[in-house]
């Protein structure tokens, strides 16, 4: 499978995606997100206190997953410069972030990844999270020592694993990915990750493998733990459920498979106003490879930047300017407000 960009699909263009999602008069049963907020007596969704700096250091990946909202893949060359990484470090040094969340692509493929983690570890940030696709640990011998590297800096590892069986996992992420992921998890367990060792937290990330929402996080976590332990002797800490957001490749899948209207309708029917207080966009600063700021990684992929005067780049980030500002929303936001809610940190309520 190739990225949408590699095959010149129109859905690789963020403008085309936004135009489709936000068409006036289209999608008969799907309201605009801001209209739904108004129905619940909520005006604008606004930012709160910044606590998470989520940095997307590049779109290159060794996998090409069917649901990827980044449209990541081996062909993507966009990557953050060392200079912008240093801008991120300076933002961390202000002490206003509790967490650095490093994502991609496969962030480990960035040549400056290890230096970035080491530099971040010397800042006041309390927690460094790396979003790892697991198979990268076996993609090349140069990545085989990553578990030890993560351990050295007390990195929390968030690993994608859409299901505890090969059928669903491979269907979403590629042939053979499940068994490679199992081997990678064993490597992480072997150095203490997921084994109850303080500071070595291993979380799994569950994305539904199709046009449906995630089941309750606690229920799925019990099943994942039970099956992975029984069948493979694998241990982890928490399962984080994330609903697929209709952006990029997942949007393409929804449209091509005739599921778009039904999926969006389901998200709308399950709109839960109790999720609004805990949405990640309220306390996250999302930074793209060029240093530009967004309310979340999904807005980043739709090229919907933050609209805060004097704060368009991580270089000029300030926590005072961040607070109480309008969050850019669209119909894609219904994925985060459905049911128990969805975020990069799992269910919201």
């Amino acid at each position: 499978m190739k990225s949408l960009r590699a095959i010149n699909s129109k859905w690789s263009d963020p403008e085309v995606q936004v135009r489709f999602l936000e068409r006036e008069g289209a999608h008969e049963h799907i309201p605009f997100f801001h209209s739904k907020l108004q129905d619940h007596g909520i005006g604008l969704l606004k930012t709160d206190r910044p606590s998470i700096l989520q940095v997307n250091i590049g779109y290159q990946c060794n996998q090409t997953c069917k649901h990827c909202h980044v449209d990541a893949g081996p062909d993507r060359k966009e990557k953050m410069s060392e200079e912008i990484m240093e801008d991120c470090i300076r933002a961390l040094e202000t002490g206003c972030f509790e967490m650095l969340d490093i994502t991609g692509g496969a962030p480990e493929m960035h040549s400056g990844f290890r230096r970035f983690v080491a530099r971040a570890a010397s800042t006041p940030v309390a927690e460094i999270v790396v979003r790892s696709n697991l198979t990268i640990l076996m993609a090349n011998p140069v990545y085989a020592d990553l578990p030890e590297f993560f351990k050295m800096y007390g990195v929390r590892v968030c690993s994608s694993l859409p299901f505890y069986s090969s059928t669903k996992t491979d269907r979403q992420r590629g042939e053979g990915v499940f068994m490679k992921s199992i081997k990678a998890l064993k490597m992480l367990n072997a150095v203490g990750y997921g084994m109850g060792v303080d500071g070595l937290r291993l979380d799994l990330v569950y994305n539904p493998s199709g046009a449906f929402c995630a089941a309750p996080q606690d229920q799925l976590e019990k099943e994942f733990k039970s099956v992975l332990e029984k069948d493979y002797g694998i241990y982890f800490d928490r399962l984080l459920t994330i609903n697929n957001v209709p952006v990029s490749r997942f949007l393409d899948f929804l449209i091509e498979s005739g599921n778009f209207e039904d999926y969006l309708d389901k998200l709308v029917q399950n709109f839960n106003p109790a999720t609004l207080a805990g949405l990640m966009c309220r306390n996250t600063v999302s930074v793209d490879w060029q240093g530009r700021l967004f309310d979340c990684d999904f807005n980043q992929m739709l090229q919907l930047p933050k609209q805060v005067e004097g704060m368009d780049h991580i270089r000029n980030f300030s926590k005072e300017k961040f607070r109480d500002k309008k969050i850019i929303t669209g119909r894609h936001c219904f994925a985060c407000t459905a049911g128990l809610g969805s975020s990069c940190q799992g269910a919201v309520v």
Binding site: K168, F212, A215, L220
Partner: peptide, 11 residues
């Protein structure tokens, strides 16, 4: 069917 798939029931 939708409910079962969402709940992680295997095929």
């Amino acid at each position: 069917t939708q409910d079962a798939v969402e709940r992680g029931t295997t095929e």
